[in-house]
């Protein structure tokens, strides 16, 4: 028993050491930090213990003037006067982005996976091509996207203009006026269009989940599907009653991982931000980074944002796990 135990320790040791040194201790450090006013330069003796002040001023529980007037929090929020408006902007941007982009990515990858699981010659090539973006997604690719989405000389808008020109005669015959004065989106250079733009970029790297879905589709027992066909079930019924239950574990997994990554989105917003967006792409991770690394360098404040970020992610992910027994079908049963 003991040697096995010793071997067990050996197996888990590298990960365990990493977890403690590189994640757990820094996390606890940041929790303590979030309760101080440290700016990273003053010596420890001058740093003040501020308790929950960082959290309160972030969330707007303590806007001196309003507290004095005894205005309750709910109406302060309704009046649009929470403590740190940019924090709320970042929070809502991040949640909006995650809640839209993740399900969108799920749907898109499910659809493409369904296409790719049809046994056709050349399917392997297409599979590889679809997966490729997942490997290329990096700083360079984000820069490329910003060029592609350029309102003037980007390919995307050029294609849109081509489509407009193509349908011009039809539109003219139906509505009278042509497509000449139809506007093209200004994507990253508008406070409203920047959000769809960044979702587009995000969904582009869906290759990994496509592969996961293909594998899941292959695991659906063929005899079940064939039997259903013989019984006269239509495509929708076959999907709903046979395929979907087998796909639910994958959906759950992709949702969780996708959500975690989406809530932490940093590069997309950090690299593609510009002033025309008016903070339209300000995300929690970017705001955290900005608070910590540009004047006035509020490291405690930044740590508080980090913890709220963790909490928000957990709130979006945990219900899906908690209710998984209700909707996730487990064919093998868990060990």
């Amino acid at each position: 028993m003991t040697p096995v135990r010793r071997q067990l320790c050996a197996f888990l040791a590298p990960w365990g050491v990493g977890l403690v040194i590189l994640t757990a201790i820094p996390m606890i450090g940041s929790l303590l930090l979030s309760l101080t006013s440290w700016n990273g330069l003053t010596k420890a003796s001058q740093t003040q213990w501020v308790g929950t002040a960082n959290y309160r001023s972030l969330l707007g529980l303590e806007s001196a003037a309003l507290v004095a007037q005894d205005v309750p929090l709910s109406s302060r929020l309704l009046r649009g006067q929470p403590g740190d408006t940019r924090f709320y902007k970042a929070l809502s941007n991040t949640i909006l982005f995650s809640v839209v982009a993740v399900p969108l990515g799920l749907l898109a990858s499910l659809a493409v996976a369904a296409l790719l699981s049809v046994p056709l010659p050349g399917a392997r090539l297409f599979r590889a091509l679809v997966y490729l973006p997942h490997l290329l997604g990096g700083v360079a690719t984000l820069l490329i996207w910003s060029w592609l989405l350029n309102p003037q000389f980007g390919w995307i808008n050029e294609m849109i203009r081509c489509v407009f020109q193509l349908i011009d005669p039809f539109v003219k015959s139906f509505c009278g006026s042509g497509t000449a004065d139809w506007p093209v989106p200004s994507w990253l250079y508008s406070p409203t269009w920047c959000k769809p733009a960044i979702m587009l970029v995000h969904v582009w790297t869906f290759g990994a989940s496509v592969l996961i879905f293909i594998a899941a589709i292959r695991r659906i027992p063929r005899p079940l599907l064939d039997a259903a066909t013989i019984d006269g079930a239509g495509p929708w019924q076959r999907f709903k009653n046979i395929a979907w239950p087998h796909l639910t574990p994958v959906v759950l997994f992709t949702y969780i991982v996708g959500m975690i990554f989406a809530m932490q989105t940093f590069n997309e917003s950090y690299l593609l931000q510009n002033r025309a967006q008016q903070d339209g792409l300000l995300f929690l991770a970017t705001y955290l980074y900005e608070s910590a690394f540009s004047a006035p360098h509020r490291l405690g404040y930044a740590s508080a944002i980090g913890w709220i970020m963790c909490l928000a992610t957990a709130l979006l992910v945990l219900p899906a796990i908690a209710f998984s027994r209700k909707w996730v079908f487990e064919s093998g049963g868990r060990r």
Binding site: L19, P26, A292, C310, T313
Partner: peptide, 29 residues
């Protein structure tokens, strides 16, 4: 082994940590 589920939960939970929070403590280390 005892605590296997806990270890697995820790693996998953460690994904929740935003890496920007870790920049300063890691640099110190």
């Amino acid at each position: 082994f005892r605590g296997r589920r806990l270890c697995f939960a820790l693996v998953i939970a460690s994904m929740l940590v935003p890496s920007q929070v870790l920049v300063v403590p890691r640099f110190l280390l």
